[in-house]
């Protein structure tokens, strides 16, 4: 690893100031960033630790009955927090399914959302890879079992985060703080350019921090589930995952992970049909087909369509019958 300077900022203002210096990067648990640095997949000369800053590791109730999660909240804390488990069990389950105990204890929410793709062409430094300075995607004609079945840009990356999928099904908003102040965006917007952006998967400027992730009270409770299909019993990224919620007001969100460059919400017409409810097996099958009608799997990953439909059927059965 190239030598780096490590800073533990005293407060948010200092952290932001340090992040404004050249080649500075935020570091949470370092579970992804340190690996990227060691493998020469990214550069940094200054690391600014975002843990320990005010508000960054807490879960607080919001006025609308929702919760605001600090950007440096540890994944393990999300999985175990009583308030999160009560109001947003899909998120708690998604967090509990992340990696291993050690990774959950070290990894933070902000770092999880800002982690880089696990694509093996990217990670092994394939020179033709868009995200390595090339202009294409070697996975398209290469080994692509783990890649996207949805076309969303030149690159066929899938976003590795489990929490992001649950957050998308809970209409979470992400609060970013930078030199110009705070901006808030839908979690989906965070990943909108993942398949096009050569440098990152989440739309966070180098001098910005994820300071909070806000869960609306409207989606607390109701029916929620998170299901993750992985090869091994643990310590695997999702082949396909599915987060689903039916809020108290009856609205439904169904989001798939492992199929696209970011969390992939099924067509709202499908969600509306599920919301109406009283679905029988036949209509569930038809809706699962419809939800996936325009996906474009590659040579090695059509199986993900089968798994995605299975997860959709299970989610619809839980939410819509």
């Amino acid at each position: 690893m190239h030598p780096v300077r490590y800073h533990r900022a005293a407060n948010l203002a200092e952290a932001l100031a340090l992040l404004g210096t050249p080649d500075a990067r935020a570091i949470g648990g370092g579970t992804d960033l340190l690996v990227l640095l060691k493998e020469d997949l990214t550069r940094a000369s200054t690391l600014v630790d975002v843990r320990g800053l005010a508000l960054s590791e807490t879960v607080t109730a919001t006025d609308d009955g929702g919760l605001a999660l600090g950007g440096a909240l540890r994944i393990a804390d999300i999985a175990n927090d009583a308030a999160i488990r009560a109001a947003y069990p899909a998120l708690a389950e998604a967090a509990a399914s992340v990696g291993t105990v050690a990774l959950r204890n070290m990894g933070t929410l902000g770092g999880n959302l800002a982690q880089r793709t696990r694509c093996w062409y990217f990670r092994r430094g394939a020179p033709t890879c868009l995200k390595r300075g090339g202009s294409g995607c070697p996975a398209r004609s290469g080994a692509n079992e783990y890649h996207a079945i949805v076309e969303s840009g030149p690159c066929r990356t899938v976003h590795p985060s489990d929490p992001a999928v649950a957050l998308a099904a809970l209409d979470a908003r992400v609060e970013l703080t930078g030199p110009a102040g705070v901006r808030t965006l839908d979690i989906a917007a965070l990943f909108a350019d993942a398949a096009r952006d050569a440098t990152r998967e989440a739309a966070i400027a180098p001098d910005e921090l994820i300071t909070r992730v806000v869960l609306p009270g409207a989606r607390a409770g109701g029916v929620q589930r998170y299901e993750k299909v992985m090869q091994r019993g643990a310590y695997d990224f999702a082949l396909v995952s599915c987060a689903a919620s039916r809020a108290e007001d009856g609205t439904v969100r169904i989001v798939l992970g492992g199929v696209a460059a970011g969390p992939w919400q099924v067509n709202s017409s499908v969600e509306e049909d599920v919301a109406i409810g009283a679905l029988d097996d036949e209509s569930i099958d038809a809706l699962a087909e419809r939800a996936m009608y325009d996906v474009e799997p590659l040579a090695g990953n059509a199986y993900k369509v089968t798994i995605a439909q299975a997860l959709l059927r299970r989610a619809m059965r839980a939410l819509g019958t």
Binding site: W120, Y121, R124, A126, P138, S141, G142, A143
Partner: peptide, 10 residues
């Protein structure tokens, strides 16, 4: 896994 195009271990 080897990449078919380059023979590089993935």
């Amino acid at each position: 896994r080897l990449d078919g195009a380059t023979g590089v271990p993935l």
